[in-house]
Design a protein around this nucleic acid. Sequence first.
DNA 1: AAAGGAGTCAACCGCTGTGTC
DNA 2: GGACACAGCGGTTGACTCCTT
Length: 327
Amino acid sequence: MDEKGRSLKNNNMEDEMDLKRGPWTAEEDFKLIDYIATHGEGRWNSLSRCAGLQRTGKSCRLRWLNYLRPDVRRGNITLEEQLMILELHSRWGNRWSKIAQYLPGRTDNEIKNYWRTRVQKHAKQLKCDVNSQQFKDTMKYLWMPRLVERIQSASASASAAAAATTTATTGSAATSSCITTSNNQFMTYDYNNNNNNSCMGQQFGVMSNNDYITPENSSVAVSPVSDLTEYYSAPNPNPEYHSGQVGNSYFPDQNLVGPQMLPETYFDYSGLLDEDLPAMQEQSNLNWFDNINGAASSSDSLWNIGESDEDFWFLQQQQQFNNNGNF
DNA sequence: AAAGGAGTCAACCGCTGTGTC
DNA sequence: GGACACAGCGGTTGACTCCTT
């Protein structure tokens, strides 16, 4: 039997059993939680039967992993998480489950939804394919640096507010780095520590209180409004920009194009193997988490562009100018 | 206030990979 | 080695909510 035939058979079996579909009820949730608490997860088809659920094993698994699991995080994707998603997606593409491994508590489904609803929407608005080099450059050179800047900004605000009461503790410089967030927590990217926050080896959690940054406690939670259109400007076609030279007309604030904000400083991971994400940490000159903690210049003259039609029109005009050299 | 459009996200579907007999 | 069941992945759908007109 070929794979298709096998699937048909499975589907027919499921049809014959008159299984329930659609949203889960509280009673079903309770049954599933209760059964897993007693017997553990796995063997989902038999689990479904034994728990008295009229659901497919796949449905039970999905409900548990994406919703009922105790460590599932809920709420808005934070800026840090956005940054992580953009970076990892640029490396791995639509490998949602792999990306999710680096975002504790987030499910592949959630990340996938985020990408489709937010990121692809912006690509559509900008009239370019989400897989196009143009859009990738926009993310790499503009959106992601802007995210870094916003994280820094939020961090600075939080630090100022709590400076009198908190003493920061940093991990080993060689093995972890931190983003200071609100509440004086440290979001870590800890490549060696396997014993906290339960995340597949590489840690991306909060050190200070063994709790993750949540949309509720992070000062940099994502607003429901657009991020890309808000910060969009077309990639700078001037190669000098990429080589660290300052001085062009695309960025109103010179601070934005100083060496400190050079995209490569944050995102040049070319040549790294998939398995070598931890090696990113070793490349101190490439480590954007370290850079996040560094002093940063800030300018919102471009980035605070809003989302009105006029703003978006302006951005599109700017994009056209950057591409063609004229309006 | 109502209608329609847009956005969000839980859930489903089809397929592939893997383990077991 | 083949058949089968199960686990897991990425793509898609549809119901619900929110926003705009």
